[in-house]
Write a protein that binds this DNA or RNA. Structure first.
Lengths: 143, 143
DNA sequence: CAGCAATTGAAAGTGATTTTCACTATACAG
DNA sequence: CTGTATAGTGAAAATCACTTTCAATTGCTG
C-alpha cells in the first residue's frame, strides 16, 4: 500500500499543480511508514528530529492535502486531537480504543455494516459515512 | 425521566457538597426540558434571556457536573462543538446525523450491540462504552 | 537563468473551552 | 437570625488545537 499511496498522492499533486518539496516528501515518507494512527504532534516531533526548522503549519497543511488526496483520513477519539490514519482504496474499518493505554485496534464486520444500512433505510437516510468506536480495556491492560 | 434525573443530580450534589444556586437550578431545568442534543452555546443563549448576567463559564462548568453526575453525556459530531444529551439510567442509543441540515435521529439496535460485544471479545477487549454514528442525508433533505 | 506561482515558517489570529481571581451567595453553627 | 467558612459566579485572561497571514524562499517552466 505504501507505494500505491505514494503514487496516488503524486498524481493528485500533479493534477493540482502542487510542487514537490523536501518538507512534503519527508512528511509523506514518515506518514506512510508510521503507525496507522498519528496525531499532528507526533508527526511534528518526529519530523523535527531530521528537520529542525519545520513548522506546525506545514505539517497541518500537508496532512490536509493527504486527506484530500484520499490517502489519509481524519479520526477523532474525543481527546481533542485530530489523528490521521492511512486509507487503502475502498477499504473501511472501525476501531477498538483502549481507555487505559490508548492502544487502537482496527476491525471490520460486514454484518454490522449491513445492519447499519438497514437502520438508515428505516429512517429514510442515505448513508455517506459512519463511525463506530468501541471503548474499553484491551487484553493487555486486563491482565 | 425529568424528575428522576433531577433527583439524581440533587443527590450527586449533596454528596459532593455542592451548593444549590439559582444559576445551577435554571441550567438544570432548561437542560432537562430541552431538546435532547444541546450545545453550550444554545443553552447559554436561552439562559441569557432569563438571566442576562450569566456567563459562559458557569454553563460550561455546570454541564460538566451534569455529565459527572450521570444525567448528561458529551457528544461530538465533528463540528468542533460539544453537545450534551440526556441520559436515562442504563439507556443507550446511537445517532443518525444529517450532513445537510444537521438533524439528529436516535436509534438503537440490539443486534448491532451484540455483534459489537462479539467483536470486542474476539480481540480480548472489555467494552465500557461505544459510539456509533451514521452520517448521511435525511429523508427530508433527499426530497 | 529569469520570472512567477506555490510553499514555507514565524507569528498573529480563531474559536471553543478552561482557568484565574475578586466578589458574592449559600449553608451550617451558634 | 447572624457570622463565617466555603462554594459559586462572571469578567477577563489564558490555553489548546488549529488556521491564516505575510514576507521571504523555493520549485518549475519557459
Amino acid at each position: 500500500m505504501k507505494q500505491a499511496n505514494k503514487k496516488i498522492f503524486r498524481e493528485f499533486a500533479a493534477q493540482k499543480g502542487l510542487k514537490s518539496t523536501r518538507q512534503r516528501d519527508a512528511i509523506l515518507d514518515l506518514f506512510l511508514s508510521s503507525d496507522r494512527h498519528m496525531s499532528i504532534e507526533e508527526l511534528y516531533l518526529k519530523l523535527r528530529a531530521k528537520y529542525p526548522t519545520i513548522g506546525y503549519a506545514t505539517v497541518y497543511r500537508t496532512l490536509k492535502l493527504f486527506a484530500e488526496s484520499g490517502i489519509a483520513r481524519e479520526i477523532h477519539f474525543g481527546d481533542g486531537q485530530t489523528r490521521y490514519e492511512h486509507v487503502g482504496r475502498g477499504e473501511h474499518h472501525d476501531h477498538l480504543v483502549c481507555t487505559r493505554c490508548g492502544a487502537i485496534v482496527e476491525f471490520s464486520n460486514e454484518t454490522i455494516e449491513n445492519l447499519q444500512e438497514a437502520v438508515a433505510e428505516e429512517h429514510g437516510f442515505l448513508i455517506e459515512t459512519h463511525k463506530l468506536e468501541l471503548y474499553g480495556i484491551c487484553a493487555r491492560c486486563r491482565k
